[in-house]
């Protein structure tokens, strides 16, 4: 028996029929064609399938899709587009934090969630926030630099807004 799932996806009210046991990852990728959310292991270990659920990072490969009923999901497609990148995305490009890019959408989303809650995180807080993401290419260094850079730029932009 298919279930009707209604939720807010990247700001839009979305309705989709799903199998009762279907995982959010499959619903996003196969039913909604949002392939920016990656499947690296399907076992909840690599973090590539990270999406934000009510602003908090969760693993779409371990989440029954029905769990997002009535809630808000943000995927990488909801964050920014080429003409108007989110500051975290800008910083990832600027610092050379992207190599193969397979972990990138998840990393970007966890970073955004961190900065939304803690605009000036310490190095250790950034590492902890990204500790559930495996990256085999970068050794994480430029990713950490990017998050710091984004934090600074976002804080400065906030400051300017405050003065205006």
């Amino acid at each position: 028996m298919m279930k009707a799932l209604t939720f807010t996806l990247n700001g839009d009210q979305t309705r989709v029929e799903v199998d009762p046991g279907e995982l959010l990852l499959d619903v996003l990728r196969r039913r909604l064609f949002l392939t920016g959310t990656k499947k690296g292991c399907g076992e909840g270990e690599c973090g590539a399938c990270t999406v934000l659920l009510d602003g908090q990072p969760v693993l779409a490969c371990l989440l029954p899709a029905m769990k997002v009923q009535g809630r808000a999901v943000t995927t990488i497609e909801g964050l920014g587009h080429e003409q108007r990148l989110h500051p975290v995305q800008e910083a990832f490009l600027e610092k050379g934090a992207v190599q193969c890019g397979f972990c990138t959408p998840g990393m970007v989303l966890s970073s955004k969630s961190l900065l939304d809650g803690q605009p000036q995180p310490s190095e250790d807080e950034i590492k902890q926030a990204l500790s559930g993401h495996l990256c085999r290419c970068t050794g994480y260094v430029q990713i950490l630099e990017a998050v710091k850079d984004a934090a600074e730029k976002m804080t400065r932009a906030e400051g300017r807004k405050g003065h205006a």
């Binding site: 909840g44 973090g47 990072p57 969760v58 693993l59 371990l62 966890s110 926030a129 559930g132 993401h133």
Partner: peptide, 9 residues
């Protein structure tokens, strides 16, 4: 336990 994403749920 696990990772931040797992601890969130």
């Amino acid at each position: 336990v696990g990772s931040p994403q797992i601890r969130n749920v």
